[in-house]
Amino acid sequence: MLRRNDFIERSLAGALSFLKEAVFSDACALDRGFLQSLDPRIKIITFVLFIIRVLFTRDIVILLFLYALCLALAYYSKINLGFFLKRTWVFIPLFSLFIVIPALFSFVTPGEVLVSFSISGLKLTITRPGLSGAVLFTARVATSVSFAVLLGITTRHFALLKALRVFGIPQIFVFTIGMCYRYIYFFMEIIEHTCLAVKSRSGAKIHYKRGQRIVAWNIAYLWARSYQLNEEVYLAMLSRGYSGEPAALDDFRVGTKDWLWLAGVLIWMSLSFH
């Protein structure tokens, strides 16, 4: 939540990185790799199962296997592994690694001593449960994030959101999520234009209190525009046949490869739980 540097540059960079990431994800999702060829509904079910398995396991071997599987899936889905590792490790797993460091030591996790040393006269002891807990925690977070990111970049975002219906999520939610996603792009464009306009008019230095007023004004303006937009969108929906109940086209097709993949994952899941 806390960042340095210029607030306009930061807001602009945030909006641009969102657009860049969304465009890049869509480009990855259009590649002809293994995961891209799966039905989004089957893919979302199997990835949620993987993430649940990661959550439940207490065994580092299973975690490492799942992480290796995730990397292999990324490779066979034509995802650049350098990009994938950077995208998944920055920021959450690295942050998790950083915050778990105190838990290595006996003052947080007492137990069998592994190694002791002194820093400026302060004696520190790393314990076995502390180390194994920290490794398990970081590996769990990194593997979960990797699966979540892989799902996001190998599925077209709109198809992924539409596929949520497979979990029995009410149509009103799926409809709202799909529309929300489209409006995020529109709002990002407004933010980008507003930030550029503010930047070109405000000069290099702005007192933070004035900066806060500018940001608040921008948010208020965005809401006012959003509200006006509602009326126009509703009229556009009516002109396209909206009758009060949202309807979605179901153009997904499950093939043999999807069933084989689902069966393979389910068999491995049941074996790994035993």
């Binding site: 529309m179 995020i184 509703y234």
Partner: peptide, 11 residues
């Protein structure tokens, strides 16, 4: 106001 939910979520 049906689209407002989605617009509010995007906001």
């Amino acid at each position: 106001h049906a689209p407002l939910l989605a617009i509010g979520a995007a906001f």
